[in-house]
């Protein structure tokens, strides 16, 4: 019968390095516009990240009043009660790199970071 070592050997170290390097470069192997794992929120002169992996509702401050960022099954949308035309509500949900929700009156930007397919979008 085969014997198995229970103490780490140098080959294990080599495998560790290989796997660690692969893990580190894996984001670069993703295609542009891939589904992201978080969004960046810009509001009130600050920017912060919100993970897309857990569902939840968070308040986002705005000059017209708080909006609500809803994360649901891996995508984000904005519920913006104080905003008159509610354009931003129609812009969601977003999940892929480069997708963005902009609320002009309430000055909120929600964006999925990552490599984008295009340099700019005309709309």
């Amino acid at each position: 019968m085969m014997e198995v070592k229970t103490r780490p050997r140098i080959t294990d170290g080599a495998l560790l390095v290989l796997l660690a390097v692969f893990t580190a470069v894996s984001p670069r192997l993703l295609p542009a516009g891939a589904v992201g794992d978080r969004v960046l929120v810009q509001a009130g002169g600050k920017e912060w990240g919100v993970p897309l992996l857990e569902d939840g509702r968070r308040e986002v401050p705005g000059p017209l009043g708080p909006a609500v960022l809803v994360v649901e099954s891996g995508s984000a949308r904005l519920q913006n009660a104080p905003c008159p035309l509610k354009i931003c509500e129609r812009m969601g949900p977003i999940r892929r790199a480069g997708e963005v929700i902009v609320c002009l009156p309430n000055r909120i930007v929600v964006k999925v970071p990552g490599r984008e397919v295009v340099d700019a979008v005309t709309r």
Binding site: K5, R7, P8, R9, I10, D12, G13, A14, L16, V17, A20, V21, A24
Partner: peptide
């Protein structure tokens, strides 16, 4: 082989950081 946490495993970690 060295047990976990002994100097030998920190070498791969250095290589990893550099990479």
């Amino acid at each position: 082989g060295p047990a976990l946490g002994e100097p030998r495993l920190s070498l791969p970690l250095c290589i990893l950081l550099t990479a």
